[in-house]
């Protein structure tokens, strides 16, 4: 069921992007399939513009450390492009795969002009160099077309499913959504999921 045990997934982004909800959503999906999931995250400062990370350890064995060892990531899902670089510096390795939302959120230091933000082309090039495979999709744009930026993370989950790195099933996702938020909202979320699948070309 898993290409590696534990499978180490890092979801990274910026405070306020819904990192915690996304990691919970994935964790519950994996857990419902009988896998043991350990999620490590920090919040508190997470909504105040800082970089945030969730570590997911997916295993058939049991609890793992809520922090992934250095160089130990198998997949990095970045809700913001440069956050992928930050994570790769500590947790990357030549075999890691990266799925990134290409929509930038500028750090205050960039807004204030003290720091420079790289071009997306550079970020893509660097990430490609540091990974076995990488996907960049504009999930935020697609989500706004769907009505709200909040669908961005579901689109990312759909895209992650399409990479076939983890056993994420459309039906299970739909059921989980329906149980959590009722049939109406679940339908829209499934739509977002499907958009994500398409964007990766699944």
């Amino acid at each position: 069921m898993l290409s590696k045990d534990p499978y180490n997934l890092i979801i990274t982004g910026v405070g306020g992007q819904g990192n915690v909800l996304a990691s919970r959503m994935l964790g519950n999906l994996m857990s419902a399939q009988g896998l043991s999931v350990t999620i490590g995250e920090t919040f508190g400062a997470s909504q105040r513009g800082g970089s945030v990370m969730s570590h997911l350890r997916i295993s058939s064995e049991g609890a793992w450390s809520p922090q992934i060892p250095a160089g130990g990531a198998d997949m990095v899902v970045a809700l913001e492009p440069i956050e992928a670089l930050r994570v790769l510096a500590r947790y990357g390795n030549p075999k890691v795969k990266v799925l990134a939302n290409s929509r930038s959120i500028y750090p205050v230091g960039v807004i204030s002009g003290e720091l420079a933000y790289p071009s997306l082309d550079d970020v893509k090039k660097w990430v490609a160099e540091l990974s076995d495979r990488s996907w960049f999709i504009d999930a935020t744009e697609a989500a706004m077309n769907l009505g709200s930026a909040i669908f961005g993370n579901v689109i990312m989950v759909g895209a992650l499913a399409a990479t076939k790195e983890l056993p994420i099933h459309r039906e299970a996702f739909g059921q989980a959504m329906e149980a959590a938020m009722g049939p109406e909202k679940a339908k829209k979320n499934l739509k977002a999921f499907d958009i994500g699948v398409e964007m990766v070309g699944g």
Binding site: R48, I82, W126
Partner: peptide
């Protein structure tokens, strides 16, 4: 790449 490409994110008010 992280040093040059990932400027720090200072905490800020929402």
């Amino acid at each position: 790449y992280a040093f040059f490409g990932a400027p720090n994110r200072d905490l800020t008010f929402c």
